[in-house]
Amino acid sequence: MSYETILLEVDESIATVTINRPKKLNALNRETIQELHEVVSELEKDSKIKVIIITGSGEKAFVAGADISEFADFSVKKGKKLAAKGQGILFDFIENLSKPVIAAVNGFALGGGLELAMACHFRIASENAKMGLPEVSLGVIPGYGGTQRLPQLVGKGRAMEMIMTAGMITAEQANNYGLVNHVVPQEELLPLCSKIAHKITNNSSVAISYAIKAVNAGFMNTVNGYEQEIDAFGACFGTNDFSEGTTAFLEKRKAEFPGS
């Protein structure tokens, strides 16, 4: 399948998705959101793919925001539909994906760009990265999950300050806040993401999918995360990956997980 606004590269079991709108600093428009949904959907179905990395083209921006020209004249009804559709097909979709998704934040991650990074399971940033939610400077609020995920990641007070001031924070600040896991020079960003991704591929993809579901449940008001963990833990015992993992441990050899 070919795409107009994204690039896809597959190296063994790791897929790298690059948002490719450099002239727009990789801003998210409707086409890009739809194509991201499509490519991530296909990668989730592909049993050979174990980890997905999302990044932006060039060295200036991961995603510099949403394409404001597309919705500047929207009505209340259209605005609600825009947020609901975007959350449904991309941001919530990525957060709840059964395969790990790493955001390689290689520059500006603003507005919808930071919201996309936060929807990924964790984030690694280059030293030149800057992050923020500037929506209130445009008379609107973050609409792709930013008001919910940012407080979960950095705490309510810091999230309120970032949202209300519409300001940017540096990669170092983001690291101190717990918004990103690592900060490295630009040239080391994708190699580090790949190194971590390879570590992930050594483990049970089935167990990882259960872990993602259990962790996410702890942030849902309608779900008891502890009960979700108990159910997922028990379900692991019925998998071939569990049988292989425990057998390999007892036999003192490396596990070869079948992924089932």
Score class of each variant (00 low, 15 high):
L90W: 09
L90I: 12
L90C: 14
D92W: 13
D92C: 12
F93I: 12
I94R: 01
I94T: 08
E95Y: 08
N96T: 12
L97P: 00
L97N: 10
S98G: 14
S98H: 15
K99T: 03
K99A: 04
P100H: 10
V101Q: 06
V101G: 06
I102L: 13
I102H: 03
I102Q: 07
A104L: 07
N106L: 13
G107C: 09
F108P: 00
A109G: 09
A109Y: 00
L116N: 05
A117P: 13
A117K: 14
A119M: 11
C120H: 11
C120M: 10
H121R: 07
H121F: 09
F122I: 09
R123Q: 14
R123P: 00
A125V: 08
A125T: 03
A125R: 06
S126T: 11
E127H: 10
N128S: 12
N128Q: 09
A129N: 05
K130P: 02
M131E: 05
G132P: 08
G132C: 10
L133I: 12
L133M: 14
V136M: 14
L138G: 07
L138Y: 15
L138A: 11
G139C: 04
G139E: 11
G139Q: 04
V140P: 07
I141F: 15
Y144N: 10
Y144G: 08
G146F: 08
G146R: 05
T147F: 09
T147D: 12
Q148T: 10
L150R: 07
L150W: 11
P151F: 08
P151Y: 00
P151N: 02
L153F: 09
L153D: 12
V154Q: 10
K156A: 08
R158G: 00
R158F: 00
M160W: 04
M160Q: 13
E161N: 08
E161S: 07
M162P: 11
I163E: 03
M164G: 12
M164L: 15
T165G: 05
T165W: 02
A166H: 06
A166R: 02
G167Q: 05
M168D: 04
T170L: 02
T170Y: 05
A171C: 09
E172P: 03
Q173I: 03
Q173D: 10
A174P: 11
N175W: 12
N175G: 01
N176S: 11
Y177A: 01
Y177P: 00
G178L: 08
G178V: 01
V180W: 01
N181K: 14
V184F: 00
E187I: 03
E187D: 11
E188K: 14
L189D: 11
P191F: 00
L192C: 09
L192G: 01
C193K: 09
C193R: 04
S194F: 10
S194Y: 06
S194E: 13
K195N: 10
K195E: 12
A197F: 06
K199V: 02
K199A: 13
I200D: 09
I200L: 14
T201P: 15
N202S: 15
N203V: 05
S204A: 08
S204D: 13
V206P: 06
A207T: 09
S209F: 13
S209H: 13
A211I: 13
I212A: 02
I212D: 02
K213L: 10
K213A: 15
A214R: 10
N216K: 12
A217I: 06
F219I: 07
F219R: 03
